[in-house]
Design a protein around this nucleic acid. Sequence first.
RNA 1: GCUGAGGUGGCGGAGCGGUCAAUCGCAUCAGACUGUAAAUCUGACGGCCGGAAGGCCUACAUAGGUUCGAAUCCUGUCCUCAGCA
Length: 322
Amino acid sequence: MKKLLVICGPTSTGKTSLAIKIANKLNGEIVSADSRQVYKMMNIGTGKDLPVNSKLIINNLKLGGFYKIEDVPVWGYDLADPKGEFSVAQYLKIAHRIIDDISIRGKLPILVGGTGLYIKGVIDGIGTASVPKNNKLRKNLEGKTADELYENLSQLDSLKAGSLNSSDKRNPRRLIRAIEIAQYQLTKKTPPSAHHTIGNNFDVMYVGLTAPKEFVDRKIVKRVIDRVDKGIKTEIENLLKNGVSWDDQAMMAMGYGLWRDYFEGDVSEDTILTEWARDEVQYAKRQMVWFKKDDRIKWFDITDPEYPNNVENLIQKWYNQA
RNA sequence: GCUGAGGUGGCGGAGCGGUCAAUCGCAUCAGACUGUAAAUCUGACGGCCGGAAGGCCUACAUAGGUUCGAAUCCUGUCCUCAGCA
């Protein structure tokens, strides 16, 4: 059976470096599952860790392209223009192609990232992903309160409305999407097409990386400072020069939008760094909340001295199985 | 030293006699999540008991006072800030 290795976990736990190590050992290629690394020109802040002067290699337009990091092809970067929009649906489409392609070439695809929804989408599929965005509808719904939206949804699809939990009932963004799907199903009268999933065709191994909170927090602080040294400010200036605006979806990424008050206001760099690190810490927490529910994941504490041996043994053993 | 403003929960900041354990924002903690997911949203957030309703205690710089009742009014004390010396 074809194999797929997933390496997930919160930010700052060394997912990529483990992936590279494994890729070198098992003849693998990396596929990034990261909702911000998909943007071009956003390298330092999203942690692409590209070697200097490396450039995107494109052999097949349908697969995006790949970078080489320590001789390992890394896919899933630079799929989108930071001025534009991007969503899971687009990611899934291309990620599936990439994974199939790697697999067909006889190599091991390694899905690496911290965006839980992307990983879950790739493996388990997202049934409604084929329902397109309806800008007109969204425009109309814009500004409505959660209660109004909920009422609206109830009329279109009372079943769906009733199934929402108390949190989603008050989440305008989710309610709008739910209405969008409900309306699509009403007008098109066609159920969303069957979605491509990988779960059934691949032997998937899930490796999760964690560390004690204090360890992760310290690492985050260090990394934030490191990114400033590497030139995050220049990177942002370049984005702006290229027409990216502060309001673009891509600029909502941590460590980007935050700088607006530095460039346009009188907020100090120190303040920005503190807030940036804080955002990352909060994000790491949210990632863990998401991942820890998935009991397919085999967890490893990266501060455990035995960790490198343990993961590699586990993966090797899984890899050797027919 | 004089004059003016002010001291509220981890922070910012409302409240200016009762309905105040104290709006709200941030932080923190817990959680949700299927086309923005590094997004968006929910709950908890002085202490103790309780599943909850609710109850009890300690609280709005500090010490007194006025009042049936004070974070809110008065007085002393200690701090902070602005202007004058």
